[in-house]
Design a binder for these strands. Structure first.
Length: 534
RNA sequence: GGGCCUGUAGCUCAGUCAGGUAGAGCGUCGGACUUUUAAUCCGAUGGUCGCGGGUUCGAACCCCGUCAGGCCCGCCA
C-alpha cells in the first residue's frame, strides 16, 4: 500500500469527515522544502477522498508570527519591525527596504510578498487548499474561545509544557503574548488577566490591555498550534521532523489540545528536503531553490512524483543535474505502465505486489489533476534535451518527433516541457554530461580506444563528408555508408564518428547536429583524426 | 544528558508494524535491431540486510547492546 493510502486508512478508522491541515510561516522566500509540507498534506487528502472520505485540505499562513530578525535580504530599516507580526508590516522592495507606498495604499504586507509566488506555484502544481490567514483569524476572533480556556487553565498548560518538553518556563510566563504599544510581541510583561483582557507592561514602560477577542496579541507557538486544530477542527496534519521529536511541539500540542477540549489530529512526520551536496535548505544560508525556480525547470508532475515516491520519513536530496533527468525518465516509464495488468498476475510474490502497488499509488499522486491518468508523452527527457539543443525552433522539434512516429501533434504538456527544457538548458543547472559539444581538436585517447578496423573508417568518413550534401539526411546515410564501403558494419562507422567528433564511444544522433555546423570544420577535424592514426 | 529518525546490490530505495527461500528501478555487462547508436527490445550480473549478542525450528524484521549520519528537547517545513 502506498504511504498515502496507509494514512487514509488510519483516518477512516476515526471517522468519515476530515480536515487535513498544513501551515507555513512566510518569514522569507519559500523553498522546495516547504513544498513537501503542502504536497504531503495534499496527497493525504487525495488518498482519503479516494477512500471515500469527506476531506477538506487547508493551508494556514502564519502571518501572526513575529519577524525574528533582520534577514540578509532585508535592509537595516527592518530593525524597527522585529517582534512585529508578518501580516502587519510592509513588504521589502527590490532593495530590501520597506515598501510603505504599497503597504499604505494596497495593504500589501510582508506576508503577502512571500506568499504570492508560492500560491502561484501551488496553482501550477495542482494543489488547491482553503487558505487561512492566521492574523485575520486572530483579529476576527476565531481564537477567542480557546484563548480564554488557555488563559483560564494556564497552570495545567504550563505543567504540560514543562513536563513534556523538560524545560522550565519563566515565572511570569503567560499563555498569551500581547502586542505592546508599538505593535511588537517582544519584551511584554503580563501583569494581570480578566477576560477578555490581558494587562501588560511593555519595554517602553507603557501599560495597556490586550483584548483576546480582537486578537491584540497571539498565543505562543506551542499553544497557537493546538488552538488552530481546535477551532478549525483539524483531524490530520503532516509536519517536519523538527516538530515531531519527543518533547517537540506536537508532543505538547497533543496534550494541550485536550485541555482546550478537542482531540489531537493524526500526525505524520516528514524528513527535510536538502539540496544535493549542500545540506539542509535554509534561507539565511542562501542555498535555497524556490518553488517557482524549480517549476521553471521541472514539470510539476515530476516534482510531485519526487515527493510521492519517497516515504515521508526518507530525506530527499533535490538535485537539478543528472538526477533530474533520471527522475523525469522514471516518470515516463512509470506513466507508460499498465498497473492493473501487472497486478493481475497471480504468480507475484507479496514483495513484488507491494512494489507495483506503491508505484501505482505514486503515479496517482503525481498527476496534476486529481483523478486523472498519467499520460506518457512518448518522449524521454533525454531525447527532448537532445532535440532542444539541436533544433532552434520548436516547430523543428515537433517535426522531428512526428517523423520518428513518436507523436502526431504535440499536446500541451509536451509544449510546456519543451519550454522548461529550454530554460533548463540555458540555466546553470543543466548538467555538462547532457550538453552536446563537438570537439575542436582530436581526442587521441578516444581514437586509440577504437579497433584497427574502426580507425580505418576515419579516412573514408572524411572523404564521404567532404563530398556529401550538407543536410541531416545525407550526412545520416554517409556515416554508415563510409563503413559499408570497406565491408564493415555500420556500427564501425558510428563508433569512428563518435570518437573523432565527440571523443566518446557513443552519443546522440550525429547527423542533425553536424548539419547545424560548418561542413569545412567537421571535415577538417576528421582529416586530422585520420592523419593521426594513419 | 534525554529522546526520535535513518543505515539493505555500484546508485536510489521497497521489504521491518502482522518473523517463513533477499526484491524493484537505475547502472554495468552481453545480445538483437543491415542508416535515426544518450533510443528500443531481450538476457545476464550483482547483497557478511552498519556491527555484536539474544529469543526462535527459522530474524533484514522481535529484544539488548554498539557504531555512523541527521534531527529535536528556544524559533525553524
Amino acid at each position: 500500500m502506498h504511504w498515502t493510502d496507509v494514512a487514509a486508512k488510519a483516518l477512516s478508522h476515526k471517522g468519515d469527515k476530515h480536515i487535513v491541515s498544513t501551515g507555513i510561516t512566510p518569514s522569507g522566500e519559500f523553498h522546495i522544502g516547504h513544498l513537501r509540507e503542502i504536497l504531503t498534506g495534499d496527497m493525504i487528502a487525495r488518498a482519503a477522498r479516494n477512500a471515500g472520505l469527506d476531506v477538506e485540505f487547508v493551508f494556514i499562513v502564519d502571518t501572526a508570527d513575529p519577524l525574528r530578525k533582520v534577514y540578509d535580504f532585508l535592509s537595516e530599516e527592518y530593525e524597527q519591525f522585529i517582534g512585529h507580526q508578518l501580516g502587519s508590516i510592509p513588504a521589502p522592495d527590490v532593495d530590501g527596504k520597506p515598501d510603505w507606498r504599497r503597504f499604505e495604499q494596497e495593504g500589501w504586507t510582508y506576508g503577502d510578498h512571500f506568499l504570492k509566488p508560492f500560491l502561484e506555484a501551488l496553482n501550477q502544481i495542482g494543489v488547491k487548499p482553503r487558505i487561512i490567514d492566521n492574523l485575520d483569524a486572530y483579529t476576527s476572533g476565531k481564537f477567542d474561545a480557546l484563548a480564554k480556556i488557555a488563559c483560564d487553565r494556564r497552570d495545567e498548560i504550563r505543567e504540560a509544557i514543562e513536563r513534556i518538553s523538560g524545560r522550565e518556563l519563566a515565572d511570569d510566563w503567560f499563555p498569551w503574548s500581547p502586542l505592546d504599544s508599538k505593535g511588537s510581541l517582544d519584551g511584554v510583561k503580563v501583569t494581570g488577566y480578566e477576560y477578555p483582557f490581558v494587562h501588560w507592561l511593555d519595554s517602553h514602560g507603557v501599560e495597556g490591555s490586550s483584548d483576546l477577542r480582537k486578537g491584540e496579541g497571539k498565543l505562543p507557538w506551542r499553544i497557537d498550534w493546538p488552538a488552530k486544530w481546535g477551532w478549525i477542527g483539524v483531524t490530520c496534519e503532516p509536519f517536519g521532523k523538527d516538530h515531531g521529536a519527543a518533547g517537540g511541539s506536537y508532543a505538547t500540542g497533543r496534550e494541550i489540545v485536550k485541555i482546550l477540549g478537542h482531540e489531537p489530529p493524526h500526525p505524520l512526520t516528514y524528513e527535510w528536503i536538502s539540496l544535493k551536496g549542500q545540506g539542509a535548505m535554509s534561507s539565511s544560508a542562501g542555498n535555497t531553490i524556490g518553488p517557482i525556480e524549480a517549476l521553471e525547470l521541472v514539470p510539476p508532475e515530476i516534482l510531485r512524483l519526487l515527493v510521492a515516491k519517497s516515504k515521508p520519513n526518507k530525506a530527499i536530496e533535490f538535485d537539478t543535474g543528472m538526477s533530474l533527468v533520471n527522475l523525469a525518465d522514471e516518470y515516463e516509464r512509470m506513466a507508460a505502465r499498465d498497473y492493473a495488468a501487472e497486478l493481475s498476475n497471480e504468480e507475484l510474490s507479496r514483495r513484488q505486489r507491494v512494489q507495483i502497488e506503491d508505484a501505482a499509488g505514486a503515479m496517482r499522486m503525481a498527476v496534476i489533476e486529481e483523478g486523472t491518468e498519467a499520460e506518457a508523452t512518448a518522449v524521454t527527457f533525454r531525447h527532448l534535451a537532445l532535440l532542444a539543443q539541436t533544433k532552434s525552433s520548436d516547430e523543428e522539434v515537433w517535426s522531428s518527433l512526428r517523423n520518428a512516429g513518436a507523436i502526431k501533434e504535440p499536446n500541451q504538456s509536451l509544449i510546456d516541457r519543451l519550454m522548461r527544457m529550454r530554460a533548463w538548458i540555458a540555466s546553470k543547472h543543466f548538467p555538462l554530461e547532457m550538453k552536446i559539444s563537438i570537439l575542436e581538436h582530436p581526442n587521441k585517447d578516444a581514437l586509440l580506444a577504437l579497433s584497427e578496423e574502426e580507425r580505418s573508417v576515419l579516412q573514408s568518413l572524411a572523404d564521404a563528408l567532404t563530398t556529401c550534401k550538407w543536410d541531416a539526411q545525407s550526412i545520416g546515410s554517409a556515416i554508415p555508408q563510409s563503413a559499408k564501403d570497406l565491408q564493415l558494419t555500420p556500427k564501425s562507422g558510428y563508433r569512428a564518428a563518435y570518437a573523432a567528433l565527440m571523443g566518446k564511444e557513443r552519443g546522440p544522433r550525429l547527423a542533425p547536429i553536424l548539419a547545424e555546423m560548418e561542413q569545412s570544420t567537421i571535415v577538417a577535424l576528421l582529416q586530422k583524426c585520420a592523419a593521426l592514426v594513419a
